[in-house]
């Protein structure tokens, strides 16, 4: 065995398929994308003219839509971290405390949105939020709160907020699942010890559960930011970036530039910036939340 592993040829043969796959599906497209980002080609298969860095110059200095979509993506990420995740942690703890049959039931119920197709979720929310026939406005009307009725997804002042709520709702199950697993991993003795020391209720969880979840939180925050940056389907299927760019997100903008506006070279420049932003965010988050290894 040792002999096989010290043979370079053998190592190469074992590693090559994986490496080739990685190069063909990740590295090569990125390099190709980098090449196209320096051109002004309008679509794949058309003539290619090198234009140097002018796409990037335009993108970084003159393109408001790019910055707007980046801002929206980051806002969504913040929404995930500051709204969705605290709720997830709260529900994970609640689930753990309930125990018994109810725990299993609620666990399943909370996870349902995650197994529904994105298309169905988008259509469902479009109907729920429909200004005339939608459930939300109907309920508001029934309660005599007509002043709160809105054209939720069609008005630029409420569209982004509505979309964030949809996305936070639909991703809730995944967050819950991870935190729930984390909570389940905390030994009961720690709670007993804390109780003996006089910690109860919120304080108990704030001092014991949340700190012990920090490895999960670190991973989850990073994942949430990346999910937010990559968000595409729900936006595409509900507002398509509208009304008037108010729900424009990076991935949707990139797609529309590449395939609707026939700015293929420019879209590749966006995708390169997209990769850089993702790497930067991941790096910064890892820096901020240095993983403290906890032993218990």
């Amino acid at each position: 065995m040792h002999k096989v592993l010290s043979d370079r040829m053998a190592i190469f043969i074992f590693v090559f398929p994986g490496l080739a796959f990685f190069i063909l599906t990740f590295v090569a497209p990125i390099i190709l994308s980098g090449y196209y980002s320096l051109t002004n080609t309008i679509a794949p298969g058309t003539s290619v003219d090198m234009v140097g860095l002018s796409n990037f110059k335009e993108l970084l200095l003159h393109d408001e839509r790019f910055w707007l979509s980046l801002r929206n993506a980051l806002l969504l990420g913040l929404g995930f971290v500051l709204i969705q995740h605290p709720i997830c942690i709260f529900f994970a703890i609640m689930l753990d405390r309930i125990g018994g049959k109810a725990e299993k039931w609620f666990r399943t119920i909370f996870f349902i949105p995650c197994v529904i197709s994105v298309v169905v979720i988008s259509r469902m929310w479009l109907s729920l939020l429909d200004p005339t026939f939608g459930l939300l406005n109907k309920v508001l009307g029934f309660l005599g709160l007509e002043s709160l009725q809105h054209v939720w997804l069609g008005d630029s002042s409420t569209a982004l907020g509505s979309l964030l709520s949809i996305l936070i709702w639909s991703g809730f199950g995944w967050g819950l699942l991870f935190y729930y697993a984390g909570v389940k991993g905390i030994p009961e003795e720690l709670y007993e010890a804390a109780r003996l020391d006089g910690a109860t209720g919120i304080k108990l969880h704030w001092r014991i559960t949340v700190p012990l979840l920090s490895p999960v939180i670190t991973v989850q925050v990073t994942l949430a930011m990346i999910t937010a940056l990559k968000q595409m389907e729900t936006v595409f299927l509900t507002t398509n970036g509208g009304p008037g760019d108010s729900t424009q997100f990076l991935a949707v903008y990139l797609y529309n530039q590449a395939f609707s506006a026939s700015n293929y070279g420019y879209a590749n420049a966006i995708s390169i910036m997209f990769i850089i932003v993702c790497l930067l965010v991941t790096f910064l988050l890892n820096r901020i939340m240095k993983n403290k290894n906890l032993d218990y």
Partner: peptide, 11 residues
């Protein structure tokens, strides 16, 4: 895009 913005009164 401009038409969309015009219609909703953003510009």
């Amino acid at each position: 895009t401009a038409l969309g913005k015009l219609a909703i009164g953003n510009i």
